[in-house]
Design a protein around this nucleic acid. Structure first.
Ligand code: ZN
Ligand code: ZN
Ligand code: ZN
Ligand code: ZN
Lengths: 132, 132
DNA sequence: TAACGTTTGTTATAATATAACATATTTGAG
DNA sequence: CTCAAATATGTTATATTATAACAAACGTTA
């Protein structure tokens, strides 16, 4: 189980950067952004990322190998995540839709497998990019 | 648009290996398995994989960076994919559920984004692993 | 045949992620 | 408080995944 709230120094640094970002961040771009703060090695980034994911503070966008802050608060500690992803500008938006979440959480596999977690990624072109 | 059916030599070699496999295969493990057939470089594998994905013959399991053959035939050329993944034995099963697929294909984002494609990955422990 | 698109081969390198080990810091039971 | 356990850090090296760039061969089809 993850600790309640207190973040360690590196975890806080990494979380701050991800929360401030307008879009998903990649691990090495985080690394380059924090080298002035004394973090020098990928391990330090990946360890912080792992913990932040466990705590539900951030999510990994699997199709992009990138990380976003959780804005949703009801995504049940990363057990039920859904995102919309613009294929043009790379924008990622966390989808917080109770109906969708319930539908998928209740979905049962024909072959009897009980699911503990899911991740859903939608792709398209966002409104902003359509105008261009 | 992808070509109708004819696969090139390398594409066929790669597809054969993926279809024969019991589970998802990683690009470099495919590479090691085909070196006897004269394929020597990652590029050759990745190029074949890209084309096979376009044609809907295989899918990429994003959370595992691995590839499986399509068994479903109605997954609309990789525009609507869903998988169940065992976190213990790494087994991957393509979910072919019309209701689920329709529900998600019809899902519309509150912010007006129209989706062209989705990928859904469920995680749990499969029946076989539960027995152990 | 000539032109075009597609596939192949090849070398090099970029980007993403983990292993392994030594230290330091925090936490909590006794 | 005090010591032991758990957690976090720093660091070097390496593994894994993926793409860039360029030259040559092949397969259309006009
Ligand atoms: Zn969330
Ligand atoms: Zn966009
Ligand atoms: Zn399929
Ligand atoms: Zn299993």
């Amino acid at each position: 189980m993850a600790q309640a709230q207190t973040l360690s120094r590196n975890q806080q640094i990494v979380l701050d950067i991800i929360e401030k970002a307008k879009g998903p961040l990649k691990a090495y771009s985080i690394l380059f952004n924090v080298q002035k703060k004394g973090i020098n090695a990928p391990q330090q980034i990946y360890r912080a990322l792992d913990k932040l994911i466990e705590m539900g503070k951030i999510h990994k966008i699997e199709s992009k190998n990138a990380f976003v802050a959780c804005r949703s608060s009801d995504c049940e500690i990363s057990k039920a995540t859904a995102f919309s992803i613009c294929e043009s500008c790379e924008m990622v938006d966390e989808i917080s839709d109770t109906k969708l979440s319930k539908y998928l959480s209740g979905f049962n596999h024909k072959k009897g497998m009980k699911f503990k977690r899911f991740n859903l990624e939608f792709f398209g072109i966002c409104k902003k990019c359509k105008k261009d």
